[in-house]
Structures are given as C-alpha cells and as structure tokens.
C-alpha cells in the first residue's frame, strides 16, 4: 500500500504519474463514484443534492464512529448515493435488497463483476 497517503513528514508528493496516484483502492469504489457522477451529469439529480446527502452521511458516521475504526470514505459515498436514489424512488430498497440476495446466490466463480458483462 505504498500509495496510501499519510500526514507524516514525507507527504510532499510531486507528480509521479499523470494523475498523481491511485484514487480508488477497490473497483466498487470507482463504480460508486461513476454512478453518482453519471446520474448527476444526466440530470437525474443535481450534484448539490448528492453533496447534501454526502455531508449528512459523513456527519452521521463521524458522530457514531469508533475512533479505532478506519474511516471509509467511499462507504459514506455509496450510502449517500443509495439514500438519494431510494429517496427519489428511482430504485426501492426492497428491489436493491433482493438483487443483492440474487447476487449472493450466483455460482462460485461468478461472484465478481466482469468488465465485459454488458
């Protein structure tokens, strides 16, 4: 995890590659990012609405978070997105829960997203 930042003395980074460094640690983080960006770009919701949901989610998490627990930013990001799409009636929580259950039943070897599924 050499790309993990820290607030120690060695945090002065130059521009080691085009974009500085990895921005997503796991693929799902990038999908959650992409969904919010795409839905806002399409005008399904305003970016400011997503941001309000994100601020609220982060405030909730921080007020209840165990200090020893690592802070998981993209968990907040996704929770904010879920709250917004469910709140707008785009997807119901029940449909989402059922889809997750279906995914859990996928045969072994099909439990990861494939880039060329679509």
């Amino acid at each position: 995890m050499s790309l993990v930042e820290n607030l120690g003395t060695d945090s002065i980074t130059s521009l080691p590659r085009l974009n500085g460094e990895l921005v997503f640690k796991e693929p799902w983080e990038s999908r959650a990012f992409g969904m919010a960006a795409a839905l806002a770009d399409l005008g399904v919701f305003d970016w400011s609405d997503f941001q309000a949901s994100l601020i609220e989610t982060i405030a909730e998490r921080e007020s209840t978070r165990d200090e020893a627990e690592p802070y998981r930013y993209y968990d907040c990001w996704f929770a904010a997105l879920e709250k917004l799409v469910v709140g707008r009636g785009l997807v119901s929580k029940q449909d989402l829960d059922e889809m997750v259950t279906d995914f859990c039943k996928r045969p072994h070897g099909h439990d990861h997203r494939h880039e060329h599924d679509h």
Binding site: E26, P27, W28, S30, R31, A32, G34, M35, A37, A38, L39, D41, L42, V44, F78, L81, E82, V85, L90, V91, D95, L96, M99, V100, D102, F103, C104, R113, D117, H118
Partner: peptide
C-alpha cells in the same frame, strides 16, 4: 461491493445509466 453492483445493475436495467458512462 455486492450492493454497489446490485445498484448499478438496477439502474442499468431501468435505463437510467449505461455502464459505459460510468
């Protein structure tokens, strides 16, 4: 991860986004 995938699948199914946009 699974929940993220599930949400994407539902949004795609309903024609709200295309995976290529993400």
């Amino acid at each position: 991860q699974l929940r993220v995938e599930a949400l994407e699948a539902l949004l795609v199914e309903r024609g709200l986004v295309k995976p290529e946009m993400l």
